[in-house]
């Protein structure tokens, strides 16, 4: 990840200057969170190239978001659900057997960095806030994918990371109608949005069901709960509600007034069902 020397704000690689202080991109420095030190042999030009292709695949970045949310839902998923990442990697890579461990590692590093960077810019995080968490994230990944023995990597460690990372998202933004009812503002918006915009089939199916308005709230509550389980293996009320709210906005058929009313009912249903 890049940081501006002048004002210490995160920068994207494709930028030509810092949007805050205007320093040119030659004044950006690379922040390494130890990801290279963990497995330096992996960062070879040839591997980097193929890993970059994998990391740029939508399916791979979605799988990573999914993995992160699954870990937030339950720490054990760091080990239990890593096979999904491997599956998607094999699917996305042109030559999956070629230096498999190294390529997978570099793909994960690149995809994670781009995930953290997008969020850091969106949430205006500073590097002292994010860097320790990014460092810990690579420790967790190394344990799961490189099999490195990490004595400090206990369940507590993952829980602490989850808590701190979630805490970092807390702010008073309300991007959609109905956000006023959510109690986890705004932990899920980015991750959920990435999944919802990809789910055109689901959106179409819901649009058809919306015309039978007497069952609409029920359908949205159900879909929210189902998808939070399906996508993120989570039973979080706010996550299910976030998905339902994003779907309503994606369908874009309801007036503001109607969205607010329907959100209220959906919220109540979700709360009842996820007691």
């Amino acid at each position: 990840m890049l940081e501006c020397n002048g004002c210490s704000k995160y920068q994207k690689t494709e930028w030509n200057c810092c949007p805050y202080c205007g320093s040119p991109s030659k004044d950006f420095t690379i922040l390494t969170a130890g990801e290279r030190e963990i497995f330096p042999e992996a960062f070879e030009p040839q591997i980097l190239l193929s890993a970059m292709n994998v990391a740029n695949e939508k399916a791979f970045s979605l799988a990573l978001i999914q993995y992160i949310q699954q870990i937030i839902a339950s720490p054990a998923n760091l080990f239990d659900l890593r096979s999904r990442i491997v599956e998607v990697y094999i699917h996305c890579s042109a030559n999956p057997s070629f230096l498999y461990t190294r390529s997978l590692w570099v793909s994960l590093v690149l995809a994670s960095d781009s995930y953290f960077l997008t969020k850091a810019i969106m949430y205006r995080w500073s590097s002292p806030q994010l860097e320790p968490l990014r460092q810990k994230w690579y420790q967790m990944l190394a344990a799961a994918f490189l099999g490195l023995r990490q004595d400090e990597l206990t369940e507590e460690f993952i829980k602490d990371w989850t808590r701190d990372f979630t805490e970092l998202h807390k702010c008073m933004v309300r991007p959609l109608m109905g956000c006023h009812l959510c109690q986890s503002k705004c932990v899920f918006q980015y991750d959920v949005k990435q999944f919802v915009v990809q789910s055109t089939d689901l959106v179409e199916q819901l649009t058809a069901q919306l015309s039978q308005s007497d069952t609409a709230t029920d359908v949205f509550a159900k879909v929210g709960i189902e998808q939070s389980n399906d996508w993120f293996s989570s039973n979080d009320k706010d996550l299910a509600y976030c998905i339902a709210t994003h779907l309503i906005s994606e369908i874009d058929l309801l007036s503001r007034d109607a969205s607010i009313i329907i959100s209220d009912k959906i919220r109540r249903l979700i709360q009842e069902r996820l007691q």
Binding site: Q11, K12, W15, N16, C17, C18, P19, C21, I121
Partner: peptide, 16 residues
């Protein structure tokens, strides 16, 4: 697309 508090466009470097 620019954030509200940006002073420069990071792509074309023009001051906002």
């Amino acid at each position: 697309y620019l954030l509200l508090d940006w002073q420069y466009c990071p792509v074309c470097t023009a001051p906002v």
